[in-house]
Amino acid sequence: MGEKPVVVQFMGLNFNLTNIMSGLVVCIMVFLFVYLLARKAQLRPTRKQNVLERVIEFTNSIVKQSIPGEEGKKFYLFSFVLFLFIFFSNQLGLFLEPKFGEYVLIKSPTSSPLITMTLASFVLLMAFYYGIEKQGFGGYLKNYTKPVSFLLPLNIFEEFSNFLTLALRLYGNIYAGEIVLGLIGQLAQSNGALTYVVAMPLTLLWQGFSVFIGAIQAYVFVTLSMVYISHKIEKE
């Protein structure tokens, strides 16, 4: 690897322009994907509409698994957008990695731990918010002493471990995928034409596998997010 991201400082904060551009690209892709499929929604579904409805059904079913019934309905949109965002983020670096000198301009945002932590903290904030909304602040805090009070430190620790596992699982999968892809690239250039020929099908194979991993990880991320949120809003 070794390509540097573009980092600028602004108002005392560091901005990783690579991540920001990638994020923007992902947002645009997700929006266009959804918008083009949802255009001219009809009672009799068209083929495009069917695709979108299948995706919506899929993400809704993820929510229903952990938060059944009426209560889960407010998370349908969130899980839908989260799933598409992570899925497209995972795929972005596989086919698009433009470089400018030694700088990389666009890569998978989810191959950066900071971005996956951002997404995880988004999920956690939602879990906190809806937990407090459902049970009140006192009731929410009491949940940390359940089922028995001496488990309090463990429950607090679990909050961090949930956050870290959620973020780092996604990051690790995508980052590893990119590293392997880079290694195959290095292999291709190591010994001329012979290794190039060997590396070509390997690259194809790994890219296909990475698409699969990206989809699985997006599914896992959304599923676990909903599980955490359901833990917070459930009364024990």
Partner: peptide
Amino acid sequence: ELGDVILYFVMFVVL
């Protein structure tokens, strides 16, 4: 890169 965190929050909400 805390700027990213903020921007990703904004981007996600806008999206």
